[in-house]
Amino acid sequence: MSDTAILTQALTKNYGRVQALRGVDLEVNQGEIFGFLGPNGAGKTTTIRCMLDLIRPNSGTLRLLGLNPQSDPVTVRAKVGYLPGELAFEGNVTVEGTLRYLASLRGNTMDWNFVRQLAERLELDLKPQFKNLSKGNKQKVGVVQALMHRPELLLLDEPTSGLDPLIQQEVLKLIREARTAGATVFFSSHILNEVEEMAERVAIIRKGVVVETAEVNSLMRRSVRRAHIHFEQAVEVNGLKNIQGVTILSRAATSINLQIEGGMDALIKSLAKYPVRDFETERPSLEEIFMAYYEEK
C-alpha cells in the first residue's frame, strides 16, 4: 500500500475560459493532518471535487490512497468521508432520515451506535427536518456523515464553518481522534488559527497554483519575525544594520524595532555588546504568513 494518501501532479481544470486550477501539485502522507489554505476562488474546492471525481480535471495526475478516482471512483469514495463547503439536502427529511439514506448509499455497513454517539457529542438532535436546521446544525450533520463510516481519508471543506466555539473544539477533537485511528485528514479552512493548531503541514494555493507546501512549524520558523529591543541607556546601534537579514524598522533613544529574516544567531551575538534591558520577539501568525504570500507573490 502506498504511503501517500493524496497525490496530485500538474492538475489543471478549466471552466470555459476560466482556469480554476493551473497545475496543482500536492503530496499528502497517510495519517497526517494537512491544511489547505487559500481565499475564495483560489481553487481549494475545485481540487477537492476533482479528488472525488465530481468534476474531471483537464490534465494532470491524481491518486487517492493509490487509486485513480476517475477510473475507480466507487472504491475511492468508499474509503473517503467528504464534508462539502455548504451542505444541502432534501428539506422534508429528518436528520435521522438524511443520515439513514446516506448510510444506505454505503450499504448500511456502519455502526449506528457510533452515529448516535457522534450526534450526541455534537449536540445534534436527529428529529428535526433538515429544512428547519440552522447553518451550524446543518454543518453538524455534515460532520457526522463524513465521519460515520470511519473513513481512511477525510476531505473536509471548511469543517468548522458556522459552528459555535465549543462545538468547533469538539469537531477538531473528532478530527484528531480520526487521525489517531489511522485516518488521513485533508482540510481547507479560512480559520488560520485552527489550521495552525491542527495541521502538521499546509499548502497555500493561489489562483489555481500551490505556492507553498511546508510543515507549519518550519513555515513559521522560516518567516519574517519582529524584535523589540529596549536598552538600559541611549545607544548607537548602527552596527546592527550590517547584520544579514536584519532591517531596522524604527528606532528611539533607548529602543529599536527590527525585522529579522532567517536565524537570530548573528543578531543575538551582536547585541552582546549593548546594555539590553528587554528583548521581545513576535512570532507571526499563520495568517500573517498567509497574507504575505498573497501580497508578495
Partner: peptide
C-alpha cells in the same frame, strides 16, 4: 442545482 448531488455523488455510488 440544489447542491444535494454534490454530497450524494461523494458516496460510493457509480453514475
Amino acid at each position: 442545482e440544489g447542491g444535494i448531488l454534490d454530497l450524494v455523488m461523494s458516496y460510493p455510488v457509480n453514475r
